[in-house]
């Protein structure tokens, strides 16, 4: 169980890191999404892995339960990362439609007199 979850997180992270090092916006967005999936699974696992246990305390029977807090945390994190990905896709799409290609401009940080003069 642990080994499966751990390797899933590892594979997602490796894929995510590879993708965000690409120079096009689309792979970068996918990479960020994969990284956030990895960290969501990691966050979930921080409450320890348990099978067939409800996240609810029972006052009638002495049964074991799983920690509900990481589940609440991960739900929040999923919602936020979903929203963030949506915003990123919109911006990436805007940039692509405007400029006609989706390369992340490497020379954008160099000062260019013409560009700044009109800014």
């Amino acid at each position: 169980m642990e080994i499966i979850v751990a390797s899933a997180i590892g594979v997602l992270t490796a894929g995510g890191v590879y993708l965000i090092l690409r120079l096009r916006t689309f792979p970068v967005i996918l990479g960020l999404a994969m990284l956030s999936y990895a960290v969501n699974v990691f966050l979930f696992a921080s409450g320890r892995l348990a099978i067939d246990q409800s996240p609810i305390l029972s006052k009638y029977a002495d049964i074991s339960y799983t920690d509900p807090l990481p589940q609440a945390l991960v739900l929040t994190a999923i919602v936020i990362s979903f929203g963030m990905t949506a915003v990123l896709v919109m911006i990436g799409l805007g940039a692509y439609l405007e400029a006609g290609d989706d390369h992340i401009d490497l020379d954008g940080s160099e000062p260019e007199a013409g560009k700044d003069g009109t800014a």
């Binding site: 916006t25 992340i104 401009d105 954008g108 800014a119």
Partner: peptide
Amino acid sequence: AEQIDGGV
């Protein structure tokens, strides 16, 4: 365009 570039 430069705003979006910086923003990404």
